[in-house]
Design a protein around this nucleic acid. Structure first.
Lengths: 245, 245
DNA sequence: TAGCTCAAATTGGTGTGCCAATTTGATCGT
DNA sequence: ACGATCAAATTGGCACACCAATTTGAGCTA
């Protein structure tokens, strides 16, 4: 396969770097040198360099040369933009992070925040039939909690976690399955419990309520993955770890 | 801004994809079309396509065209906010999130993880004089904890928080101030306490040790901001909120 | 001798042309 | 009318040539 030639060259260059023991900060051979060494045009080497640059392995300086930023990983560690993450891994991360965020929010939440959350849950309850609407309310509720911390980074983190859901094509499949069920009612009850704890300014209670909520979601997901076609089973178990609290 | 032209074009193409609502699986305009549209050569567009390909946003098929694999995330979110975020807000977010991550890690940490952390702390202790070295060890220790959860999203989140530090010009100022002091020794003791709790697989202990560590860092930061020139005072209080636990 | 200047060499940046794989659709045979 | 075939159009793959920024060092000057 002559296709994706720049990838082959890029991997060869990585190997070359490893073998020759180039130090971080050191200078790589020039594009022309590699071009001759591998018997390809400089264009291809340049493309390979771009690949290494995107992977944050090298830095390219016009008129000077290219320099090693960090040693290329042998196996697998490059993951600048979190990609193929399974729903379980995502849910576990949300469980760990959002329960902490809920505990934080409980200590600084305002009456206004509480009111907004209440309205959102009312909406979620009223629109249980509409997947679109109740799902939007679901997301909104979680983000309102993060917003209540008044820390933009926590809100940002939470937003990223939720955005990641839409990016995964797998989530669409799960979505379709959950759609047929009535777990949404259970989850709404979870949400109400979280809100109740927030109302009482009970940090530990909010943490545990949020933890339990996402535990329930995980269990649901697990049940779905077992009872139906096992097309995406390998997908689920990227890692489990971490029990409650 | 003639340098790194392919990056500009690549970002423009991402924006184009978002704006025009191209569906996943859909076909992108050809390299030639983009070349004309942006007024650059096809070579540059090709490089931009390679960038998107490395980021796993598109798939390039010879003789056919390029196809969207998933919607590009709006990268402006993190980066645009990164500038406006004060050290206190960042530290608070780290306190909330990293303490939860530490609790999670305590439940699944392996002997090997513990060993790596121990070595990192030994290094941190040995290099207390070198700002560079001990700071790198500091970062490494925190990331090792996140890595121990075996959840790539938690690691990713933690990494983003630390990367944000470098992005803030303010942190350099703080860095220079802390450099003169010997808080590093105190923080190393904090780290050792966290590691001790992880060794005992004590989730609650790890959570509180990490919380206390970052509380100490916040206090240090606060002290520095009061005793010295008040140039960056307005900078600090973006939000405080959230007490311990 | 130390330092400055500037031109040549080095190195990455970009544009153009042609090649190869794929797709498309018109044409021919049944 | 249907389908197989194949040639032309489309599209990405690659090489080469030239441009621009940077570095280097020889030679000049103080």
């Amino acid at each position: 396969m002559a296709e994706r030639l720049y990838r082959d060259i890029g991997e060869h260059i990585k190997e070359e770097i490893r073998v020759q023991g180039l130090k971080v900060g050191g200078k790589l051979p020039t594009e022309r040198v590699y071009a001759e060494q591998f018997g390809v045009s400089r264009t291809v080497v340049r493309e390979a360099f771009i690949m290494l640059e995107i992977e944050e392995l090298i830095e390219v300086r016009k008129g000077s040369g290219s320099y090693l930023i960090k040693l290329p990983a042998d196996g697998r560690l490059v993951r600048s933009h979190a990609e193929d993450i399974g729903p379980f891994e995502l849910l576990q991360a949300r469980q760990v992070l959002e329960s902490a965020i809920a505990a934080c929010a409980a200590q600084v939440v305002t009456k206004h925040d509480i009111q907004l959350m209440q309205e959102t849950l009312d909406l979620e309850g009223a629109e249980l039939e509409s997947i679109e609407k109740s799902d939007a309310a679901d997301r909104e509720f979680h983000l309102l909690i993060a917003r209540a911390t008044q820390n933009s980074l926590l809100l940002e983190t939470c937003t990223q976690l939720w955005d990641m859901r839409e990016r995964s094509p797998m989530w669409k499949t799960l979505h379709a399955r959950i759609q047929d069920r009535s777990y949404r009612g259970d989850w709404l009850a979870d949400h109400r419990e979280v809100l109740a704890q927030l109302r009482r300014r009970n940090a530990e209670g909010a943490r545990q309520a949020m933890w339990q909520h996402l535990e329930n979601v995980k269990v649901t997901l697990f049940a779905l993955s077992n009872t139906e076609d096992p097309d995406f089973d390998g997908f689920l178990f990227t890692s489990l770890g971490a029990g409650p609290l």
